[in-house]
Write a protein that binds this DNA or RNA. Structure first.
Lengths: 337, 337
DNA sequence: GATTGGCACTCGGGCAAGGGGAGTGCCAAT
DNA sequence: ATTGGCACTCCCCTTGCCCGAGTGCCAATC
């Protein structure tokens, strides 16, 4: 009961601080939330919450603001995922339905998510490792250059141009294409290495270098360090929170331009919505921000992540709802194709 | 002679203001630039320059800062294009040489340009309208869905998935592919409409709807309103100039997220380096910024633009040099392939 | 006639002092 | 355990002030 009220006070502080971005005082809580006790009682509770590390005081005669630990408790124990209005749901589905190809789906999603949450949105392309090969195409650009096109069942299309060690005739290319297609189609991209090495071994001595080059390129394109792509949107929203970030937003913007960083952020998503608050974030420059992320899937396997980066004092329930909804629609679209 | 000195004063003001970002006073000019006259003379010249609109005073007892008009005069009459050091040139060529495909070239270029100029960089994909068709591929995703892949000589690869009005067999797809390839390869993308309509007319009545759908999709993909793509990089650099933009940088960031806006910026590039200063910029939200842009080419025709957006008080000679250099290397890479 | 030194003037920014107010912690009473 | 009261702290806004940078103008000079 007593514990209950203290949590209610924490919730009140988080909610008020998120909406006003000003330290919350005991009096304000009594006024805005009907807790049925006086401000003095709230003060006692606040002293307790501060001792336990949930909230902090910017300076002596100010109200309290939640700490990262306080937000964590709020997310874990106090907030559900706010359901979206049906109008919002329809907006999402309408918006995503008009996409013409995978690039378009990604671009629209990131835009949509940025708009819904008014924060920076991240959307990862479906991982090739989790995809199977739908088609492989070899195009002869010139005597000794090929263009390799790999099409995955998730809709991803990867291309590489290859400098051949020796010229190939059109017939040789056609023959190689046929063999590649025969061994690769329907296979997992991650298995391509195993599937294709026999082709190199089986090649005639003269053609072997060329085949090896093509196979190497194919394997390189599906290597999981290279193949990840993440699109970013809504960076303008960062500017609105300028003063929320300890020093400046330059390091934040910089971090968000690094693919490596983004991959670390979205690297460990699962089907559940994950929240990383402030210092919980593995990336140093983003420890003033929070991440709300989840995975989307094709069939049963999670193929990539989607998420949002924003100030720690964000509307967690609302953001989690938006992220989850977009992920659901993405899964749906992927399954339809 | 007198005119010469006044221009020298303008140059001094621009240079000093760009490097210090503080209003420049008459005394500072005498100290930092050996003009051989006293500060009183400079003051007279400054009064003149102000009257003519080249410079302005933020408030009564402050130094002068250049107006957009002043920068314009500086760019047109006072500055050459600063040559790059050979180390810089080599860095550029090394950096771009490692690219594996067109996407990679674009990504590297934008990163490089942002780094060189410490500003926001824009790089446009080679326009399809200016390209010829290298290959067309049709992949049968399911009974009534096709994936269309268009490969242009500039290295661009476009994909569309197509919902067929009626199922097609594998043989029908193969036959259509052959016909498409025969009519389209080597043609200008912009001519595809004319080249392919005969195919629709020649199709059997049963297959006509499907053929029409494919051709329509192909034409849609090469329509010049859709096909343009621009990548953006270095937005973090904007944050460094936070205070340089009249109010905030939010509208600037927002504008830069709009493809339409970017297209307007890079739309009219030519082989020359173009500079748009402040209010000369057609996009309202960017009238506090300057644009330095140019085109790069394949063969003799300009295929797309590259440029930089930054504060009006930028280092124009240096920026122009970097933009031009990157464009040159892009042209070179495109010609090699 | 251009250039110069001198001088009064303006104005922004930095600094200190002061008051208002929000919010706290503690304590005694219930 | 809760509450009202009260003294206290500290931020922040406002005010007033001074200083210095920079100007414009003018009379003197070359």
């Amino acid at each position: 009961m007593l514990e209950d009220r203290r949590l209610a006070v924490l919730r009140a502080i988080v909610e008020d601080y998120v909406s006003t971005r000003e330290p919350v005082g005991s009096k304000a809580i009594v006024e805005r939330h009907a807790l049925g006790v006086s401000s003095a009682t709230i003060r006692n509770d606040m002293a307790f919450l501060e001792e336990e590390g949930y909230i902090a005081q910017p300076h002596t005669s100010a109200g309290r603001i939640p700490t990262d630990f306080g937000y964590r408790a709020f997310v874990d124990r106090l907030s559900g995922v706010k359901p979206l209005s049906s109008a919002e749901r329809r907006a999402i589905s309408d918006f995503l339905a008009g996409a013409v190809d995978l690039d378009d789906v990604m671009a629209r999603s990131v835009r949509l998510l940025a708009q819904l949450t008014r924060q920076v949105a991240l959307v990862q392309y479906p991982s090739l490792v989790q995809s199977t090969v739908l088609h492989i195409e070899l195009v002869r650009l010139s005597e000794s250059r090929l263009l390799l096109v790999l099409i995955a069942d998730t809709g991803r299309v990867e291309q590489r141009s290859i400098d051949l060690p020796a010229p190939m005739t059109e017939d040789e290319v056609t023959s190689l294409r046929t063999r590649l297609v025969a061994s690769a189609i329907g296979e997992r991209c991650s298995d391509l290495g195993d599937q294709l090495t026999p082709l190199v071994d089986a090649a005639t001595p003269e053609s072997r270098p060329a085949v090896a080059a093509v196979v190497a390129s194919l394997i390189e394109a599906t290597a999981d360090t290279v193949e990840q792509r993440i699109v970013l949107g809504g960076t303008a929203n960062l500017a609105r929170y300028r003063d929320s970030f300890s020093i400046s937003l330059e390091p934040v913007l910089e971090a968000l331009e690094e693919q490596v960083v983004l991959l670390r952020l979205l690297g460990e998503v699962s089907g559940e919505v994950t929240v990383r608050i402030g210092h919980e974030n593995p990336v140093e420059d983003l420890q003033g921000t929070s991440l709300v992320a989840t995975g989307y899937s094709r069939g049963d396997s999670v193929v990539a992540g989607v998420g949002v980066v924003g100030p720690t004092h964000m509307d967690y329930p609302g953001t989690m709802a938006s992220v989850r909804a977009v992920a659901q629609y993405l899964s749906q679209i992927l399954d339809e194709n």
